[in-house]
Design a binder for these strands. Structure first.
Lengths: 121, 121
DNA sequence: CTTTCATATGATTCTATGTTCATATATTAT
DNA sequence: ATAATATATGAACATAGAATCATATGAAAG
């Protein structure tokens, strides 16, 4: 009896071990979901450069104040950004440097990897 | 005339420079969107450990073959995974190590950062 | 305390997307 | 050629989520 080209049972057992529990996988997906929106991505890139108030972000992105506020809430709930009040205005800023690293990795994937096109040979 | 607490014009100008063009921001968001789903996250984690055929992934995740195939297509279109045929079966595997790095960064954010709860003092 | 300026939020709407169902394609065996 | 197995795919459906609109909250000025 020859070894099959692809051993199903073996592969399955190998994999079950390294799989994190469902809750963690869900949390991970939820985190990445936050980065999966152009508006939020723009907000984060803006905050890479400087602390900004809501009005400034609204102006920068050319969107309504409401839309921005809603997304700022999403980002804050995910602990990616934080804020402090200064009189009437609310200043937002990056919560930590994980944000930069995560986006940096994604950036590398889409730039560095300019896949060879089929017609290129 | 005193310097205001928060200089709007200055901040805006600082930011406009570092902002990548819209298309790139959109591509970035689209990439992260791929990671923002539990099913796809599970598939990727599975492929961390071993190359797998569709039937195996289907069994591992306890989902329908169709659902898995659809998601495999999404992952492949994003160049996160690739596949090769072995007879009747199709073997899927990770395309490169960007996947590991990106997920790794996300992992750090949600684990390492166990935010201090308000009631903790 | 009323007004104004800055931001937050609830409800609604509209679109995007994950799953299912049915069916198509591809490979191998009979 | 037909059947069986493995995977892919189009259409329909259901839900999630992003933007909008109207309105609420909060701080400061008059």
């Amino acid at each position: 009896m020859e070894k099959p080209a692809h051993d199903h049972l073996d592969a399955l057992n190998t994999v079950r071990g390294g799989m994190p529990r469902d809750e963690l996988l869900c949390d991970l997906a939820d985190l990445f979901k936050i980065f999966g929106d152009t508006t939020r991505m723009k907000i984060l890139f803006s905050l890479f450069e400087a602390e900004l108030c809501v009005h400034e972000i609204t102006a920068l992105l050319g969107m309504t104040q409401s839309a921005i506020s809603h997304q700022l809430k999403v980002l804050k709930d995910a602990h990616l950004i934080d804020n402090r009040r200064e009189g009437k205005t609310m200043i937002y800023f990056l919560a930590d440097d994980h944000v930069r690293s995560i986006i940096g990795q994604g950036f590398e994937h889409i730039t560095e990897e300019e896949y060879p096109h089929e017609k290129d040979f």
